[in-house]
Design a protein around this nucleic acid. Sequence first.
RNA 1: GUGGCCGUAGCUCAGUCUGGUAGAGCACCUGGUUGUGGUCCAGGAUGUCGCGGGUUCAAGUCCCGUCGGUCACC
Length: 367
Amino acid sequence: MSAVTWRALATDGEARAGMLSTPHGEVSTPAFMPVGTKAAVKAVDTDDLHAVGAEMILANTYHLMLRPGADLIADLGGLHEFMSWDRPILTDSGGFQIFSLEPEITDEGAVFSSVYDGSTVELTPEDAVRIQERLGPDIAMVLDVCVGLPAPREEVEVQMRRTLQWADRSLEAHTREDQALFGIVQGGVDLDLRAESARETAALGFEGIAIGGLSVGESAEERNTALTAAVVELPPDRPRYVMGLGDTDGLLDAIARGADMFDCVIPTRLARHGRALTSTGDFNINRVEFTDDRSPLDDECGCSTCSRYTRAYLRHLVRMGELSAHRLLTIHNLTYLLDLVAGARQAISAGEFEIYVAAVRSERDSG
RNA sequence: GUGGCCGUAGCUCAGUCUGGUAGAGCACCUGGUUGUGGUCCAGGAUGUCGCGGGUUCAAGUCCCGUCGGUCACC
């Protein structure tokens, strides 16, 4: 019996709408997962997350193993109880930190210098699985090696094969039956490597498969062709998760190619930097033209920020460094992206996904 | 009243001794940020150098005067 299953509800071309079932409930797909690296989506709380329509969130193995530690979280009842979030959680394995923190990598694993105190931290694929079993998310990810692009083909190939080896070891180490383990496809923007990685990863029998190593420096076109090359090799009855992707065009492109799940720091990070995502394009609320603007961030948005506050007020909060600015903009940006994928789900079910994409882009480009 | 110090970008100031394309930090204006260190990065705009006169090829800088601020003393 699988911890996590996915079933299709509708398809439109390659795009698919479906339902992901997890130990902590169901998630409609395509789904966008806000990022809560340290067991917190920055600036908001779980009430806010429910209010903006988030059904599943993401946390991070590397950060949580260091602070406060996986054993402590396990003692306190696991991630869900620890952070008071009773819906599905997915944890990233620390693979992205292999990209962003540049640890020493061997066949055995990765050796980090802790970002908190500089101490040496080793993380093997087995460690990542064991730690995630302690943390207790609904979905755990295998430790992978995410390569920044552009990179030499040899480097991409070496790390893709290493990721496959690690995937195999991860499955071997995985014991919790109430937790799913997802494999991760690598291969950069090389179509043959992508296809091979996808085939081999799929053959290992994961309950779901992620496509990683994208949005790390390649062009949108390269990303899309790499995505297609991978997706066609994946089993149609398993969820497909594109890691780290979260700009409007990227999401629509990936959904059109059959992707089901996404996460990205864009909405939350940009919010803390004063940038608002809207149906007519994104902008920095700091701009002087908004000084006396009485309109909401987005006329079409129904979030609690847009229903109550003007651009002029939000600009003031951002400029003064008021903490509420982070929360209010984060609520709005998450609402925008979650509404975007909700619209995609609806359009797929109605057989109108292409029309939806055209409408979203047309409105954005007119604004 | 006498003496000292100060007056340069929106703000705080460097540059004056030893004349040679007017600067920095902050603030301001744009843009960037993709499996997160609330950062950071990259560009940009900004000046009657208090005012007047003099010396000089050339004055923010040297000289004279003057205005304003400030401190000390009487």
